[in-house]
Design a protein around this nucleic acid. Structure first.
Ligand SMILES: NC(=O)c1ccc[n+]([C@@H]2O[C@H](COP(=O)([O-])OP(=O)(O)OC[C@H]3O[C@@H](n4cnc5c(N)ncnc54)[C@H](O)[C@@H]3O)[C@@H](O)[C@H]2O)c1
Ligand SMILES: NC(=O)c1ccc[n+]([C@@H]2O[C@H](COP(=O)([O-])OP(=O)(O)OC[C@H]3O[C@@H](n4cnc5c(N)ncnc54)[C@H](O)[C@@H]3O)[C@@H](O)[C@H]2O)c1
Lengths: 256, 256
DNA sequence: CGCGATTTGTGCACGTCTTCACAAGCGCCT
DNA sequence: AGGCGCTTGTGAAGACGTGCACAAATCGCG
C-alpha cells in the first residue's frame, strides 16, 4: 500500500536498497511474468490488467496480484499495470539489470545445444566461457567462443566476474566440477547432470533433470489409465475431449 | 500400517489395482529416490535406511519416510528398506514397468542433443519417433532413427502407442505442435519452448525453461549481494558458518 | 462535480507440505 | 526368552502457498 518502499529505481543502482524478501514460489513465477510482459510489449501493449497478464502467464489472477504486491508494485486501480514499468521492476528484482556472466562446463552433446542457444543472450545472460576436460574438445570454436580447458577456470574467473556456473558433464564428473566452480567463487549453479551436488552453505543449486520430468508425466499417465479402467468413481466430468474413449488406456492393454 | 494395500505386485499387472493418489510433492520426489536406489543397487547394497537413502537423494529423512509410507511401503523397522523391492515398488507406481514411447518434435539444436541422450533408454523410456517440419531435416538419421515429417504424426501414432510428446520447437510453433499431439491422443507433454501451452483438460503439461532457472538463480545472487552490503540487520543468526561475513567468501579461501 | 465501471491490493479461510518427536516394531545378542 | 539398540511409520503443529471475495482507488464520462 502507500508504503511504497522506493523501489531502488532500476536506473539508480549504487546504494543497493534492501530487496524485499519474496516468497520462493513468487520468485519462481516472476520470470514467467517477465516473459509474458515482453511479449506484450512487443505487440504494442502499454498497460495490462492482472487478468490479462495472468492469462498470458498461465496462472490465477489473484495469485499474480499478490505476487506483484510483494514487490511493492505499481498498478493503477481501474487501469492495470504499466507494461514497461513492470518489466523494469521485475528485471531489477531478479537482478537482471546487469548482464550476468555464465560459465558452461561440459561441451558435449547437451553443452553444444546450450552454447548455441540464443535464449541466454535475450533473457539477461551472457556465456562468458565454455569449458571442457577433454583435450580434443579444447580449442573448438562454438558461436564465436573458444572452448577452454576446465583447469583454466581460475583464470577465467579472474578475467570475468562469473555469476553462474552451468554443469553439463556426465554425472560422475559433476561433483568435482561443482567443487571447482565453488572454489573460484561461483555461488549459483545450474546442474543438468542427474545427481545431487553437495555444496557449502550459501551456494544455490538448481537442477534440471529430463528423466525426472518424464517420470512424473509417466505417473500421471499411469494413473489416468488406471482410473478410466474403473467405473468412474469421482467422475469429475472429464469434458473437453469428445469420445470418452480416452485414447491412452488402450496402450496399457496392448503390452503383450 | 497393517492395511498393506497389496501393492499390485510389479510382476502381477493385469487387473490394474487402484493407485494410491499420492501428494504431488511426493510424486515429484519419487524419481529422485529411484535414481538414488539404482546407484545403491549398483554398488551392491541390499538394504538402506531412510537416513542413508534420504542423504543420497538430498532430502530430509522424515520426508522420505512419509513419502514412502504413502505407497504402503515395505520397510523393516530396525533394518531399513530392501533396495530391490523398493525399486520395484516405485517403478510400478510411476508406471515404468512398461517402457513408454516418446515422440520428439523439433529436431534442431536442442532436439539433436535430446535424440542422442542415453538417459531416455536407461530411465524407462524409448524414443519412438523424431519429427520435424523442415523438409531438409526430414530423412536425416540420428542414432538409428530417421526424422519424419511432423504431419506424419497420425501415422506414427497409429504404429506406436505414444505415451509422451516432447516439444523442442521454437516457441512460435509450440502451440500448434501441442494441438497436433493432442489430436492424435497424446495426454502428456514435456515442453522446452518458452511459452505457455493451452491444452484440454486431462492433458498434462510440464515445462522446462532454462532461462527461468537462470533468472531464479540470478535473484538469489542479487539478494546475496545486497545482503552482504548491509550490516546484518535482522541477522537471523546465520549460524553454521564461522565469521558472519556470509558463507560464500570462506570457500573462496579454500581455492588454489 | 459526481457517479458508475473497472481493477487493484489484501484479509481471511482453507488446503498442502514440512518437520519434529516418539511410540511401535524388528532383529540380534546374550 | 528377554532385553537392547536401531529404524520405521505417523500424529500433531507449524510454515507456506492458494484463491475467494470485497473494500478502496482510479478513470472516464455525462
Ligand atoms: N544430452 C541430453 O539431451 C541431456 C538431457 C538431459 C540431461 N543430460 C545430462 O547432461 C549431461 C551431459 O550430457 P551429454 O549428452 O552432453 O554428455 P556428453 O558425454 O556428450 O558430454 C559431456 C561432456 O562433458 C565433458 N566432461 C567430462 N568430464 C568433465 C570434467 N570433469 N570437467 C569438464 N568437462 C568434463 C566431456 O568431455 C564431454 O564433452 C549428462 O549428465 C546427461 O545426463 C543430457
Ligand atoms: N538450444 C537450447 O539449448 C535450448 C535450451 C532451452 C530451451 N530451448 C528451446 O527449445 C526450443 C528449440 O530450440 P533449438 O535451439 O533447438 O531451436 P532450433 O531452431 O535449432 O530447432 C527448432 C526445430 O524445430 C523445427 N520446427 C519448427 N517448427 C516446427 C513445427 N511446426 N513442427 C515441427 N518442427 C518444427 C525446426 O525445423 C527446427 O529443426 C526453442 O523453443 C528454445 O527456446 C533451447
Amino acid at each position: 500500500m502507500s508504503q511504497h518502499r522506493h523501489p531502488g529505481a532500476p536506473g539508480r543502482a549504487g546504494a543497493v536498497p534492501a530487496l524485499p524478501d519474496l516468497p520462493e514460489a513468487t520468485v519462481a513465477r516472476l520470470p514467467e511474468y517477465l516473459r509474458a510482459l515482453h511479449n506484450l510489449a512487443d505487440t504494442g501493449h502499454e498497460t495490462v490488467s492482472s487478468e490479462g497478464l495472468s492469462a498470458a502467464a498461465g496462472v490465477n489472477s489473484a495469485k499474480l496480484r499478490k505476487d506483484l504486491s510483494h514487490l511493492g508494485s505499481y498498478g493503477t486501480r481501474g487501469v492495470g499495470y504499466d507494461v514497461a514499468l513492470l518489466i523494469e521492476q521485475i528485471e531489477y528484482v531478479l537482478g537482471l539489470t546487469q548482464r550476468r556472466a555464465v560459465a558452461l562446463v561440459g561441451v558435449g552433446n547437451l553443452g553444444h545445444a546450450l552454447a548455441g542457444y540464443d535464449g541466454f543472450a535475450s533473457r539477461g545472460f551472457r556465456i562468458a566461457a565454455l569449458l571442457d576436460a577433454d583435450p580434443s574438445r579444447v580449442g573448438e570454436e562454438i558461436n564465436g567462443l573458444v572452448v577452454r580447458h576446465v583447469d583454466d577456470l581460475p583464470t577465467v574467473a579472474a578475467e570475468e566476474s562469473l555469476a553462474i556456473g552451468v554443469i553439463a558433464t556426465p554425472a560422475a564428473a559433476a561433483q568435482q566440477v561443482a567443487d571447482q566452480l565453488v572454489a573460484v567463487g561461483v555461488t549459483s549453479i545450474l546442474n543438468f547432470a542427474p545427481c545431487v551436488l553437495s555444496v557449502p552453505e550459501g551456494v544455490d543449486v538448481r537442477k534440471v533433470d529430463l528423466a525426472i520430468e518424464l517420470q512424473i508425466l509417466s505417473f500421471h499417465e499411469h494413473r489416468k489409465a488406471s482410473l478410466t479402467a474403473l467405473p468412474a468413481t469421482g467422475g469429475s466430468a472429464l469434458t473437453a475431449l469428445p469420445g470418452g474413449f480416452a485414447a491412452t488406456d488402450t496402450q496399457e492393454a496392448i503390452g503383450t
